[in-house]
Design a protein around this nucleic acid. Structure first.
Length: 160
DNA sequence: GCCAACGTTGGC
DNA sequence: GCCAACGTTGGC
């Protein structure tokens, strides 16, 4: 099993939006960065666990836990001219972009802000706390993942 | 809203 | 293939 951090802007799609979906499940569409795409396509697997991170808000931080329920398949919003993430380079016969499905698992009893993450020495090296780290799909070390769950008030033994 | 950091584009 | 210009991300 792999561990991930997925960023989302809560104004656009928050963890509450995911929680309110049928079966708490939605497609994670709109990824238009090649490094993130490669993670989605090659390494994000069913059962992988995801830290749900709110970015571009005050304060940014990890708000909960989700899991992967469907592996990479073509992101059809890329060839819809009306979609926000339309990309004319991507075609149905040769899709450039992929998405996965994620399911809400839990909200953190305690919000874990970016400042909290930076203040925890156990999280040294975690990508999200590094300067200029814009990647919206990030791999997370298991030890880091467990530490963040604990900070959020969830028992890793119950979820991993 | 600002702006530094980063990714992408496109002329050469 | 280089790199300047441009667009986007995201913390602050």
């Amino acid at each position: 099993m792999n561990f991930w951090l997925f960023k989302s802007e809560p104004d656009k799609y928050s963890i509450e939006d995911l929680k309110n979906e049928p079966e708490h499940t939605a497609c994670w569409d709109g990824i238009r960065n090649y490094q993130a795409r490669n993670f989605l396509r090659d390494e994000v697997k069913i059962g992988d666990m995801v830290l749900y991170y709110h970015s571009r808000c005050e304060p940014p931080g990890v708000v909960g836990l989700a899991k992967v329920v469907k592996e990479a398949y073509p992101d059809d919003t890329a060839w819809d001219p009306k979609a926000d993430y339309y990309d004319p380079k991507s075609k149905p016969e040769n899709p450039t972009w992929v998405m996965v499905d994620v399911q809400w698992v839990a909200n953190f009893p305690n919000f874990v802000s970016l400042a909290d993450l930076k203040a925890n020495p156990a999280l040294e090296g975690m990508r999200v706390i590094m300067r200029g780290q814009r990647l919206s799909i990030q791999p997370v070390d298991k030890a880091h993942f467990q530490a963040v769950l604990k900070m959020g008030g969830l028992d890793p033994k119950s979820y991993l």
